Simulated assay, not measured.
Amino acid sequence: MPASLLRVFFLALGLLGPQAWAQEPVAAPLRVVGFVYPPFMYPDERNVPAGPMVEVVAEALRRMGQPARIELLPLARALRQVESGEAVAMFTVKKTAQREAQYVFSSEPLLMQEYVIFVAQDSTLAFRGDLGVLAMSSIGVVGATSYGAIFDAAAQQGVFKKLEISSSHEANFRKLLAGRMDAIVCSRAVGVEILKQLQATGRVKISGPPIETTQSYLMFNKAAATPQLVAGFDHAIRGMRQQGLLGTGRKARPGGAN
């Protein structure tokens, strides 16, 4: 290149300034938490978060170009961390009036699941849709958990006289198997998976129809999440759903979605 052209070239670089050659800033990783909830989310053999819901959230964030660190914690701890802002968001969480007053939810649901009544195989307890029949039965639930509007409303109205609160669904099933409670309310898919892990599938049955089919979402800390972040996540989930990549328990397809 002639010297005169070289001078013009380097002059142009000087006029543009160093910012013209700087890389686009990389967004700081978001801390997103979930909880152990097989078969939807669980630690794999390397103790790395795995499962369909982990893959869905990770893929949505990847499509947004948003780095993130996903962790699975005990349920109560995950709730505390998203409340304090130590974590920006938590999945999968049902909407309630109390939570919507405190947090921001994605508009697009991540998970739909049926909540049912599990009882011992030889139980005569027969649920046919009326929660009143459970009024005097000892019923296992997990603390700080919503079971859908129908069950939650009945609990708030004092329909159930013997609710027994445990720290996990597995703990409830162990109590049911030991004859220490009459029934458990749980997601059908989660209950079936836990019974497989406990090798107790034949010892427990589902009584009656589902109480309700619920939807669960990504829940954001209001102060930590921008409107753009929430809208971007919804856009990514909507696109995955339109592509048929979003399901509720099937093995994830290539690319990190399911």
Rank of each mutant, 00 (worst) to 15 (best):
F173T: 05
M181A: 11
N221C: 04
L195N: 01
G255M: 05
Q242C: 06
I206C: 10
G179M: 09
P209Y: 14
G247A: 08
K175Y: 05
R174V: 11
L177Q: 06
L195P: 00
Q199I: 09
A189G: 04
G208D: 01
V185S: 10
M181N: 12
T201E: 15
T214Q: 05
E212L: 12
A189I: 02
R253N: 02
A225W: 00
G247D: 07
D234I: 14
F173H: 07
I206G: 11
L198I: 05
V204N: 10
I194E: 02
L229R: 01
G239T: 05
V185E: 10
E212R: 05
T213A: 12
T214H: 03
V204C: 12
R241M: 10
V192K: 09
T213C: 08
A252I: 07
R188V: 04
I184K: 04
T214K: 02
I184Y: 03
L246V: 04
I237W: 06
I237D: 07
A225V: 03
K175A: 12
G239C: 07
T248M: 03
R174L: 13
Y217M: 04
N221E: 02
K196W: 11
T248S: 14
V230P: 04
R180T: 14
T201D: 15
A231I: 12
A236E: 04
V190Y: 06
R253Q: 10
A225C: 05
A189C: 06
K222Q: 15
Q242F: 08
A200R: 07
L195D: 00
Y217F: 14
G202V: 09
I184C: 11
P254V: 10
L177W: 11
A223S: 15
N221S: 15
A236I: 08
I237E: 08
I194C: 03
G179L: 10
L198F: 02
R238M: 12
F233P: 02
R188S: 08
R253S: 01
S187A: 15
M240W: 11
P254L: 14
P209D: 09
G202C: 14
V185L: 13
